[in-house]
Design a protein around this nucleic acid. Structure first.
Lengths: 326, 326
DNA sequence: TTGTATGCGTTATCAT
DNA sequence: ATGATAACGCATACAA
């Protein structure tokens, strides 16, 4: 049985209240007593029971993080940063991979509510708007605007889409493909799509759009999609992929087909996942400020927890990373 | 204020004990009453307070996961699988990135103990053996053997090192380099090193060993290390990298130096991170069974939590993935 | 400056 | 088959 506040109290010969006080550094306690208590804690190797504290304070200091999949480099990087900032503010992270499964996402919400997390950061969003409204918890979403009452942090998807497309157009691509996951799943990513359309149309460039209808991202699906793209449109000489993962798949398929990059096909990705461990990808891409996104997500969530009202919409600047594929 | 068991009790007109019973499906309750209670819960949108349950039961159903860095693809993939299996067994995951910082790792241990997690899965290990002994919690380590009383799950590092080296030797490499992170940090990875040495010596092949002394992995360090390797040993024609991340860096440097792969330099990596999102790396590598490692880690931990004794040492088979770089 | 008593939401031990 | 009541470990309003 672990040592409790009561054991310390008995050892020092005072009441539990006093122990609680030095634990929380509240109220008045003589320096002498304080030291004796601390020594006793040290000696008995006392660990405050956070569960009991949470119950009593009605605050868990836990943030629930729901994302599609940590093993996706964008979310891995995001998760790392979120955990870092959360920790530095005294919060712990409960990790949930929804795998873009609606039922699972719902279960996680219930789980997080039951666990009395203080708030939720949401990088995955497959449920209906109404279901989110019913959640009374502080929420911050990443790159996925749900309602106008839930703060959303995103990078400038429109500008990113525009920049990416422009690069391809400037390099004289004749037929440009936009290839992405299920647009339904990420309303904000459609802005990349919108920007793409505007650019190609404004410049009179031939184009084609490819997207999976599958409910989730899956490398195999991407592969098939990319394969189909070049089979149906062998004359495509420019590709804007909505994630670096997809872009890598495009590069791969081109190698397979013997198409040289960037000579015969130019490729621009999205995310800038090389921020962490992938600086070797060498893919020209639009870099999202993942670190800032994570930091702001935590900050805004904590503000809400404190009863403050963070901005409802935050659009962070993106950056074009010119590299080898375009 | 959230609705509690007490509210339900009043609504249905029974005692809290009864509510608790239907909640836990324990003891006898008439089907009729059971249904009435469940309906009331539904109607009032009741969410059991897991914190209170944890306090009462002295069990949190939370597993602490300490790894160096989720954004490293090996750990990202591992984390995904661990979370998946933990969830399917009714456990939640508290994520901790130690960043291979000893002080931080210690803080996380205290945090997890204070949070009353039911057990810890450890993929990071920088503290001294004694410090781990003092931890009374169930622990399982991944790829890092600490003491003979803490179950450790790893892939067959020796065999992996042997296989990787053999590939290079079979392909007639004349001078082979082994390049890795700080060997001190991962006693098990030294087995790859041992196997490497045995092979090159047994076959009379010239070799060189390069490793960072930095306490943690950092892409920049790897880059410098790789750069130094080829500067000091331009005649190296085979490289065994202790992780795919490093291998990718080697590939990159070779491109930069105009050395063709695999003609002038052959490269073998380690990890098999392409299991998730990186099947495009095309690096010949030793694949670790990450999924199995995650599943077993959870399984062994839960066994310990249940008072059972899982195997102390589990070595999973690795696989050579023959691809383009060797 | 320190102590007493009560509550946090649930489970568990007795009763009945 | 159901209920009263005491834990669980800590925080806090109110006393002293």
């Amino acid at each position: 049985m672990a040592v409790t506040i009561k054991d310390i109290a008995e050892k020092v010969g005072v009441s539990v209240t006093t122990i609680s006080r030095v634990l929380n550094n509240r109220g008045y306690i003589s320096d002498n007593l304080k030291k004796r208590v601390q020594d006793a804690m040290e000696e008995m190797n006392y660990q405050p029971n956070e569960i009991a504290r949470s119950l009593s304070r009605k605050k868990s200091n836990i943030i629930g993080l729901i994302i599609p999949d940590v093993s996706h480099p964008f979310f891995a990087e995001l998760t790392k940063n979120i955990e870092y900032y959360a920790y530095s503010h005294g919060y712990k992270i409960l990790l949930c991979n929804s795998l873009l499964n609606k039922r699972k996402e719902k279960e996680y919400f219930d789980l997080l509510k039951a666990s009395r997390v203080d708030g939720i950061i949401l990088g995955s969003h497959t449920m209906g708007v109404e279901e989110y409204r019913s959640i009374k918890l502080p929420i911050v979403t990443i790159d996925r605007q749900i309602t106008d009452s839930i703060p959303c942090i995103s990078s400038d998807n429109y500008e990113g889409g525009k920049l990416a497309t422009k690069v391809l157009i400037d390099k004289k691509c004749r037929k440009i493909a936009y290839i992405s996951g299920n647009l339904q799943l990420n309303l904000l990513a459609t802005k990349r799509h919108d920007a793409f359309l505007e650019q190609v149309k404004a410049n009179g460039v031939e184009y084609v759009v490819k997207q999976t209808h599958v409910n989730g991202f899956n490398l195999e699906d991407y592969r098939k999609l990319v394969h189909a793209l070049f089979k149906e449109h062998p004359d495509v000489d420019g590709v804007f992929a909505s994630s670096d993962i997809i872009a890598m798949e495009v590069v791969r398929e081109c190698h397979r087909l013997g198409k040289s990059i960037p000579d015969q096909v130019r490729v621009v990705g999205y995310d800038g996942i090389e921020q962490g461990y992938f600086q070797n990808c060498e893919i020209t891409t639009i870099e999202q400020p993942i670190k800032d996104m994570g930091e702001l997500a935590v900050q805004y969530l904590i503000q809400q927890i404190a009863g403050e009202a963070p901005p409802m919409e935050t659009i962070l600047p993106i950056k074009l990373l010119k590299r080898g594929t375009a």
